[in-house]
Simulated assay, not measured.
Amino acid sequence: MAKLLYSATMSLDGFIAGPGGDMHWMARLPDTGPHEVADGLWKQIGSLLVGAHTYGGDDPNAGTDAEGAFGGLWSGPQFVLTHNPPARPVPGVTFVTDLRTGVDAALAAAGDRYTNVLGADVAAQCLQAGLLDEILVFVAPVLLGDGTPLFRKAGGTFAELEEISSATGPSPAIWYRVRK
């Protein structure tokens, strides 16, 4: 059965994108060699649930062989949560206007693999609705100072997390289960 996973690379000061959604800082990270968690993650993903800003946003690998999800390694069904679906269909992308509809469709499409959430706003909505199962954070050795935080909820929210695993190195990875 599929699970809903929010995975993101975050700066040490808590941002997943720089000011204005800038993602070019990701392309400037030094190559630290093999990473036991990151290198195989894309194989565990069966579908994507993507926010509209992320879908139409900045790909640090645009125009290269690494363009797209997981450095261009992943392909499969994508479900984009948006208030303004395009008039024309986009191959491989389903636009949905309701969170629950998008989550259900993405989980069904993922089979026995993860549905990966891309976008802080959609992840916060999933967490608030009690739908998010796991969170995987890679901590990049940079400071951005401003931008899109890993999570933001007006008025705050409290979510208890339980560590599943962690990996050390230049970009530590911490995998959590969301306690419900």
Rank of each mutant, 00 (worst) to 15 (best):
G46R: 05
G46S: 05
G46V: 06
G46A: 02
G46E: 04
G46C: 02
S47F: 05
L48V: 14
L48F: 14
L48Y: 11
L48H: 14
L49W: 05
L49A: 03
L49H: 06
L49F: 06
V50Q: 08
V50N: 03
V50T: 14
G51S: 09
G51Q: 06
A52P: 02
H53N: 15
H53I: 09
H53T: 15
Y55T: 06
Y55S: 07
Y55N: 04
G56Y: 14
G56F: 13
G56L: 14
G56D: 13
G56V: 05
G57L: 06
D58H: 15
D58M: 11
D59K: 08
D59S: 11
D59F: 10
P60V: 08
P60A: 06
P60T: 09
N61F: 15
N61R: 13
A62K: 14
A62G: 08
A62L: 12
T64H: 11
T64S: 15
A66P: 03
A66K: 15
A66F: 10
E67L: 07
E67W: 09
E67C: 06
G68Y: 12
A69Q: 12
F70T: 07
F70M: 12
F70R: 12
G72M: 10
L73K: 15
W74T: 01
W74G: 03
W74Y: 12
S75T: 14
G76A: 10
G76W: 06
G76C: 06
P77C: 04
Q78I: 12
Q78T: 09
V80T: 08
V80H: 05
L81W: 08
L81T: 07
L81R: 08
T82R: 07
T82D: 04
H83D: 11
H83I: 00
N84T: 15
N84G: 06
P85E: 02
P86G: 01
P86F: 04
P86N: 02
P86C: 08
A87G: 14
A87I: 01
R88E: 15
P89T: 07
P89R: 12
V90W: 02
V90F: 04
V90L: 00
V90A: 02
V90K: 04
P91N: 03
G92L: 04
G92D: 14
V93T: 13
V93F: 07
V93L: 08
T94C: 02
T94G: 00
T94D: 08
F95E: 04
F95Y: 13
F95R: 02
V96D: 04
V96F: 00
T97S: 10
D98S: 05
L99Q: 06
L99R: 07
R100G: 00
R100F: 00
T101S: 11
G102W: 03
G102E: 02
G102F: 01
V103Y: 00
V103G: 02
V103M: 01
D104W: 06
A105I: 00
A105W: 03
A105K: 03
A106D: 03
A106R: 01
L107G: 02
L107K: 13
L107F: 02
L107W: 02
A108G: 04
A108P: 12
A108R: 14
A108S: 13
A109I: 10
A109M: 05
A110P: 03
D112T: 14
R113G: 04
R113H: 10
